Computed example of a mutant assay.
Amino acid sequence: MTEKITVTHRHGEKITVEALGVELLSYVYKPDPVAYESQKPYAHPIRTLQGSPVSGYRPSDHRWHKGIQMTSSHLSGQNFWGGWTYVPGDWYQDLPDKIGRMRHDGFEDFTVEDEKLTIRERLTWIENGGEHWASEQRDIVVHSVEPEEGSWALDWSIRLTNLRDEPLRFGSPTTAGRELAGYTGLHWRGPRDFGGGEVFGPDGAEEMMGKQAPWLAFVGEHDALDAKSTLVFAHAPENANAIHESHWFVRSDVTPMVAISWAFFEEFGLPPGESFSYRYRVIVADGGWDSGRVEVYLKSHGWD
C-alpha cells in the first residue's frame, strides 16, 4: 500500500516532502551563496522511511557536493560542477572564472496528489561571464512511498536545449586526460559513514566504475543507528536512445558517491538550437538490499 505524502513549499527557497512523520527530501532551489561551488538546485537532506540520512552536504573534501545535483564538470571550457577544475598536464586548479551556474527560473507545473508530487522546473545554465548557454526543463517526481517495501522513489529527468550559436561540448576529467574520473551528469554524494559501502549491479558485486548497466545499487551502513540503507540508481528505458551512452562513475571507500556519467570516456556535442534528454530513478530504501530484491522491485514498478 502506498502512503500519503505532505508537501511544504517555502516559496523562493525549497520544497519539502514528508511521509510517516519523516522528512524524506528537501529540494532546494534558492542558490547557495558561494559562486565557487557552482550555484544550482539540489536535493538534500534525503532520508529513508525510518529517518536514516542518506545524503551528504558540503563535506570537507568537496564543499560543492550537495545531496543529489545535476552537474556538468566539463562543458565547453566551463565547470558546472563546482570547485577544482581538471586541467590536462596541471592536475586540478582553482579557476573561479571557469565556474558556471544553473539559475532557477520558475515552475511550469506543481502538482500535489495524495501519493505523488510532480514538479516541472525551468532553469538557465549561465557561464561565468553571464552568457546564457542552455535552457533546461527539469521534471522531478516523488512517488511510491511504500512502508511494506521500506522504500520510496524519486524520478529526475532533464531536457537541455543549446542557446548558443555554436555547439556545446560535454566532457569530463577523463575526456580531459584523467583516468577513471568520468564524473558528470546526475550526481549523488552519500554521508561520510557510507564510506566502504557495498556497490553492485545486475551481475552482482563487481567493479562498476566505468561500466554500463541499467541500474546500480549502493548499500551503506550508518554510524550510531545499527542499520543499513540502500540507494538504487536506474536508467529509464528511453536512455538507451539518448544523445550519448552513459557509464557509471562510483566510489565507495573515502568519498561515497555515484554519478550517471553521460560523457565518461568521450565528449559529445549538442548543436545550436537542439536538445537532449535523460531520465533516471533513485530508490531510497531501508535495509541492505541484494540484487534479487532490486530486480523484483524494478520489475514491479514500471515507468510511466
Rank of each mutant, 00 (worst) to 15 (best):
6 T>L: 07
12 G>Q: 04
13 E>V: 09
15 I>V: 12
16 T>V: 13
22 V>C: 03
22 V>A: 11
27 Y>P: 07
30 K>D: 03
36 Y>G: 06
37 E>Q: 11
41 P>I: 13
45 P>S: 05
46 I>G: 08
51 G>F: 04
54 V>D: 12
54 V>W: 07
57 Y>V: 10
70 M>E: 13
78 Q>F: 05
79 N>M: 00
83 G>V: 08
85 T>C: 09
87 V>E: 05
88 P>D: 06
90 D>P: 02
91 W>M: 13
92 Y>M: 08
94 D>G: 06
94 D>H: 15
101 R>N: 01
110 F>R: 08
112 V>L: 14
115 E>T: 06
118 T>H: 15
119 I>T: 15
120 R>T: 14
122 R>P: 08
127 E>S: 05
128 N>M: 03
130 G>K: 02
131 E>R: 07
131 E>G: 09
137 Q>I: 11
137 Q>G: 13
142 V>H: 13
146 E>Q: 05
150 G>P: 05
150 G>W: 02
151 S>M: 02
157 S>N: 08
164 R>N: 13
170 F>V: 00
171 G>K: 00
174 T>V: 10
175 T>K: 12
176 A>K: 02
177 G>H: 04
177 G>W: 10
179 E>P: 07
201 G>K: 02
208 M>I: 14
214 P>C: 03
223 D>M: 08
224 A>W: 15
224 A>D: 15
226 D>E: 04
227 A>L: 04
231 L>A: 10
236 A>H: 01
237 P>I: 03
239 N>C: 08
245 E>Y: 04
246 S>K: 10
248 W>Y: 06
248 W>C: 05
251 R>A: 00
255 T>F: 14
263 A>D: 04
266 E>N: 13
285 A>T: 11
297 Y>S: 03
297 Y>E: 15
302 G>S: 12
303 W>Y: 03
303 W>A: 03
